[in-house]
Design a binder for these strands. Structure first.
Lengths: 207, 207, 207, 207
DNA sequence: TATGAATGAGCATTCATTCAT
DNA sequence: AATGAATGAATGCTCATTCAT
């Protein structure tokens, strides 16, 4: 019954909205721009998403879904190789942020504007985190995560470092006197910062 | 003969702009709102600051100046007690963010919007960082900072953790299942995350 | 072989349109709302009625048809009892307006907007009025209508009073200091105003 | 302090709004049209009147003020010549409606849309009505108003007849077979309808 | 007959910025 | 220096109407 064309239109709108909100933020994004980018009629946006705020929430939900997918992939690798948990997580996040540069921007705008994602998407995330916690505990026994520390601070620290370095690329370049635009320098900074969190894990330094 | 009234007007505008840009972001901020908050005439804003973007840059410069002042105070304490560098830096930042909640918001908005501070304010900052680097090296010899690591990753990690936890209070609360609105829980998380970076520094846990 | 479904759809649309136009007026009415109220597809509205204006005209024709039916019923009673013409007319109108509150609203909106009913419905009405005129003349000879007056002013006066009191319920309540929302007060006002038009007709005061 | 130009702008807007709301109604009126008619900038409309609804209320208040002025003029004449109260009221209203054709339209639209005038304007009106009631009572003793009737029904009847005939000019023309567009015919109908309300007042038939 | 999808012009309202006093 | 008035280009959102199935 639902027409094919409608699905395509909806997806085009969502994709355009992701771009627009990511680059302009909630207040700065223009519905007109989203309509143009998606080559859809403005009215369709309202028909499918209600209003600007709901659209923004939908965009966030979409972004979170991608993050969860990434985390699930990481989990599978980490469950197979718990001794490399930190490395897997770090590399998974780095790849993710590089492939989806809009992700952290959207979440940052959302946090600042105080507009959360669609209901339900947060819950799904907590399930993933529970699973991650279990692997973390296993990893502590085999060198994949620092022993003698709790899960929350560790996760926060890992996440924080990666987010921060990606987010403040420009600012950091100025302050630290390094060109973080170069992916190699960037990677090296992330790695050495995360290495601070636990015992050096020599086997993946050369990876 | 300084025109006293003019100075006061300018300051009132700047203060109002800080509030407005901090809570609404660049795109979301309204010149009208700034005029009302400061009880100044809109035209004065244009006379003193040129346009919205320049005003935003001035606001950033103001925020950075406060940060630098804070860092200088930290430096003095750390230069006297290098063995407690990490603790001084951590506590200085925590206090700073708690006293100036608008600071990280303004910088975050600015980073996302790609609008930097007024020329000159960045340079001043690098001077401070050089000084900090020196203390860091001294601190490594006496337990105030983890030995065997470089300055940049360490600073990034410390800064990242503090920023991140302050910035994602809402998101983090949901994900980690802890209420970060409670300052005690919040502090404890920051401290234990930063402790991951180096050897526990038992003497200031009870401070 | 009448397409039953089609007829029902058409009627549902018309009924919904009566409600919508009555409460919102021509400019304020929304085709979408009519579609929703009638649970019909918007395209059906255009298939059956052409466009918004034609639909509004059809709604008016429908309303006028109901009025004419009411007047014909009144006429039958009045032709049997001409000595009570005024009372029959008055009571017929009062009942009609109470049962069809949308009627006067639709006609009022139409008059203001300058959009008349479908062609043909006006002619039918004049036939009824001719018949009424005849009864009026008979009634004048037996106390059912004021002697020595012409038909037009009398009809206008009766109609005017009833319309006006129904239409300006809110305004009148404020101005006259009486609560016309109470049907008893309302009725009494209509009756005494109409009684002004001719000799008191004591026999139906207690009716 | 308030600039002259501002007053003129405000008045131009109000005048344009009266025209627009009168001819199009609340829903049908366009802010753009009001801006164009008044040659004012749209923003000024919002600066002075807040929003469309408030502007409509202001327009009503303006209309009511004119009505009250008219009624006060009638009152003065009627207080001097109570024996001609009905005639003065009738002629005052006829003149008023002819001079301010927008008045009854605005009030009719407002009644239908359920949007009342600005607070305060109704109260002022009741004062006038109290004064009118007093004259009515005096008039009853000298033939200026029908003896043996109450004030409210009488006022309602007079008002109703005049409103109705002005309002339904087009409809009535069709139904009654008279061209009410001709002011003479129109006047005659009003007069004879109102004469129904009380004893013929021969002296002003020739006026 | 019936329906969901699509459209373009329009609508109330707001914004950053400038003018005139 | 300071202010109220003014402006034109948006900005989010909606409407009557048509297309495609």
């Amino acid at each position: 019954m639902t027409q094919d064309r409608a699905v395509r239109t909806r997806e085009a709108i969502l994709a355009a909205a992701v771009e627009e909100f990511s680059s302009e933020g909630y207040a700065g994004a223009r519905i007109d721009a989203i309509a143009q980018r998606s080559r859809a009629n403005k009215q369709r946006i309202y028909a499918y998403f209600g209003n600007k705020e709901s659209l923004f929430r939908a965009v966030q939900a979409d972004a979170l879904a991608k993050l969860i997918a990434c985390e699930e992939a990481v989990l599978e690798r980490a469950e197979a190789e718990p001794q490399r948990l930190t490395a897997h997580l770090r590399d998974g996040y780095i790849t993710f942020h590089r492939d989806h540069p809009e992700f952290r921007r959207i979440l940052a705008w959302a946090n600042l504007a105080g507009i959360g994602p669609e209901g339900g998407s947060a819950e799904h995330r907590t399930a993933v985190l529970k699973r991650l916690k279990k692997v973390f505990q296993r990893a502590q026994t085999c060198g994949g995560a620092p022993a003698g520390t709790e899960f929350s601070p560790w996760l926060v620290a890992v996440t924080a470092i990666i987010y921060f370095i990606f987010s403040n690329q420009r600012t950091a370049s100025v302050n630290l006197g390094m060109s973080l635009a170069d992916p190699k320098v960037h990677d090296e900074l992330v790695r050495s910062a995360i290495d601070l969190l636990g015992p050096p894990q020599p086997r993946d330094r050369q990876a």
